[in-house]
């Protein structure tokens, strides 16, 4: 697979704080990458460095196999944090500036405004736009040069549910067209919904890098309860296949270390003379997996 972006040993120190610590990963063409981490984990700093607005302390990166230069940035579309435009200019004038910088023809302006649904508002000043509209204009600006890579930093931050859905739809549409997308977010749910690959960052360090569906080798867990949980607990200890069993108050939680079907567990316990009044098999959400990964490394 062709690498669109390759980051090698990237480090950024702000005084005593190390915002990004020896970060390396690569982005393959055509995939949707999530850059996941809590606030302050170094996501925006990383994006800032590969977009030439933050000077790295150490390390290097390659866009399209070349040492980064201004020309490669023109093949990328990026929105960092919140939409940055000239508030006193109309949507159209703002996009004209972007088009001139990127070297895109003005004819693209109407086309992209149409896609994000802002064509009727093109003559209106940017400062009159709602946050959702600003974010959509930012996407139109980023798409102006039909970029090979689209970088989005917290694109749905601060939007209402309708705005979030509309932005996600646009992103998915763009991804379907074969554009490589790098999406930074602290929302696991968002990454899970949109991304195929994920890089998890915490305090500037990579905790995980790979496919979203291979992120955890976990087999899930059971939530069980019976009339007498003490007896149930002892019985569960006799069955092999559990990594950890804990008492959660009203029920027990048994974490699996091999695959096991609910009916098998139910049958085994019944044979031991225990009748369950509660049995649910769950997979950890990405959120719990994320927390596990973060905790394991600490």
């Amino acid at each position: 697979m062709e690498n669109v972006l390759e980051i090698k040993n990237l480090t950024k120190k702000f005084g005593r704080l190390t915002a990004v610590n020896d970060l390396s990963f690569s982005v393959e063409k055509g995939n949707v990458y999530g850059l996941l981490g809590p606030n302050g984990s170094g996501k925006s700093t990383t994006l800032g460095m590969i977009l030439n607005v933050i000077n790295p302390t150490e390390g290097s990166w390659y866009w399209f196999g070349k040492k980064s230069d201004v020309e490669s940035l023109k093949r990328i579309g990026a929105i960092i944090e919140h939409p940055n435009f000239y508030p006193y200019l109309s949507a159209e004038k703002n996009l004209e500036i972007t088009a001139m910088i990127k070297g895109a023809p003005f004819s693209k302006i109407e086309e992209k405004l149409e896609i994000v649904g802002l064509l009727e508002r093109k003559k209106d000043k940017f400062r009159t736009f709602s946050l959702g509209m600003k974010q959509r204009l930012a996407i139109a600006a980023a798409m102006l040069n039909d970029p090979e890579v689209l970088i989005l930093d917290e694109p749905t931050n601060g939007l209402d549910p309708q705005g979030i859905i509309s932005i996600r739809n646009i992103i998915q549409k763009i991804a379907a067209g074969g554009t490589t997308i790098i999406l930074a977010s602290h929302l696991l749910d968002e990454v899970e919904k949109v991304c195929s690959h994920v890089v998890i960052l915490e305090k500037g360090k990579t905790l995980y890098s790979g496919r979203v569906d291979e992120m955890s080798a976990s087999f899930g867990y059971f939530e069980v309860a019976a009339a007498n949980n003490e007896i149930l607990l002892n019985a569960l200890h006799e069955i092999s296949g559990f990594e950890k069993i804990s008492n959660e108050g009203t029920h027990l939680k048994a974490i699996l270390n091999r695959d096991m079907a609910s009916e098998d567990l139910n049958r085994t316990l019944f044979e031991k003379g225990i009748v369950l009044n509660h049995l649910v098999k769950r997979k950890e959400s990405l959120e719990t997996q994320f927390l596990q990964i973060t905790q394991n490394k600490n």
Partner: peptide, 12 residues
């Protein structure tokens, strides 16, 4: 307006 940042990101 942070447009300097945006201009640089856009490839200026």
């Amino acid at each position: 307006n942070r447009t300097l940042k945006q201009n640089l990101i856009d490839g200026m």
